[in-house]
Amino acid sequence: MNDEAVILVHGVWMRAFSLLLLRRRLREAGFHTELFDYASVLGGGERSRARLERRIRAQNAAKVHLVGHSMGGLLALQTVQHLPGGLSGRIVCLGSPLNGSAVARRIAGLGGGRLLGGSRQPLCEGLPARAPAGGVGVLAGTRALGLGQLAGIFDEPNDGTVAVAETRWAGADAHREVATSHTGLTVSREAAQLTVNFLRSGRFDAGAAAA
């Protein structure tokens, strides 16, 4: 049995390979790590949650953690909130608009709801602040490079796609800003190290005592 497993969940319009570098860094840190691929637009939300739940249950590990980028963080939390018995490990959300996304609402309002598909509701509305027992950490990017910045949506700190305020979820145990863009959170060495710290201790500070 592996001591700790991590399932990585990608964001909307992406596929699992976008998290290959993060997977490698988590493996180097000693975690058994695998990718979860799902149809973020064409697939229904219930079907994706059911598939992720089955993947969680299939892990032969003492603890199972989830790390989700953008919509992947929302899907991770939605799944755990409906998971009987909860999650044995922790969740890290990278640039996830847990309070809802202004960019997603702009896209939907312009008639582009089909571009969001099964991810539309959580992206537009966010999630209720019901934190799982294991703990949730959120990383937010502050380098404004992305669709939202180009469209002039933000007048506040953001990563180009998601505003920092959209990631400040009341159900989170820890929140940290990283000087990178929305996509950059998936390849940032700092973000990877902070993720490792939180999965191990429940805090982003290196060497913190277990929560």
Score class of each variant (00 low, 15 high):
62 A>E: 15
62 A>N: 12
62 A>L: 11
63 K>T: 05
63 K>V: 00
63 K>M: 06
64 V>Y: 12
64 V>R: 10
67 V>F: 02
67 V>H: 04
68 G>F: 05
69 H>M: 01
69 H>C: 01
70 S>R: 14
71 M>Y: 15
71 M>R: 09
72 G>S: 04
73 G>K: 04
74 L>E: 07
76 A>P: 10
76 A>G: 07
77 L>E: 05
79 T>Q: 03
79 T>C: 00
79 T>P: 13
83 L>V: 06
88 S>F: 10
89 G>W: 13
91 I>E: 02
92 V>N: 02
93 C>D: 00
94 L>I: 03
95 G>Y: 07
96 S>W: 04
96 S>K: 03
97 P>H: 10
98 L>T: 04
99 N>C: 11
99 N>T: 01
99 N>G: 06
101 S>V: 02
101 S>T: 01
104 A>M: 09
105 R>W: 05
111 G>T: 07
111 G>L: 08
111 G>P: 13
114 R>G: 12
114 R>I: 05
115 L>A: 13
117 G>P: 14
118 G>K: 10
120 R>I: 11
121 Q>Y: 14
123 L>N: 05
125 E>V: 12
129 A>F: 13
130 R>C: 07
131 A>M: 11
132 P>L: 07
132 P>D: 09
132 P>I: 09
132 P>C: 09
133 A>K: 15
133 A>D: 10
134 G>M: 06
135 G>M: 05
136 V>W: 13
138 V>Y: 13
139 L>M: 02
141 G>L: 13
141 G>A: 10
142 T>D: 12
144 A>F: 08
144 A>D: 13
146 G>W: 14
146 G>F: 14
146 G>C: 08
146 G>N: 10
147 L>W: 15
153 I>A: 06
153 I>E: 05
153 I>L: 15
153 I>Y: 15
154 F>M: 06
154 F>G: 03
155 D>Q: 15
156 E>L: 07
157 P>N: 05
159 D>G: 14
159 D>S: 14
162 V>S: 08
163 A>F: 12
164 V>F: 11
165 A>K: 14
165 A>L: 06
166 E>V: 01
166 E>F: 12
168 R>I: 01
168 R>D: 02
168 R>P: 00
169 W>F: 09
172 A>D: 07
173 D>A: 12
173 D>Y: 06
174 A>K: 10
175 H>D: 00
176 R>Q: 05
177 E>P: 00
178 V>N: 01
179 A>W: 12
179 A>Y: 11
180 T>L: 10
183 T>H: 13
184 G>E: 05
184 G>R: 10
185 L>S: 02
185 L>N: 02
186 T>S: 10
187 V>W: 13
187 V>P: 00
187 V>K: 10
189 R>L: 10
190 E>F: 08
192 A>Q: 03
193 Q>D: 03
193 Q>K: 09
195 T>A: 03
195 T>M: 02
195 T>G: 03
195 T>W: 02
196 V>N: 07
197 N>T: 07
197 N>C: 03
199 L>M: 07
199 L>Y: 07
202 G>M: 08
203 R>Y: 15
203 R>P: 01
204 F>W: 14
204 F>K: 06
206 A>T: 14
206 A>Q: 12
206 A>D: 11
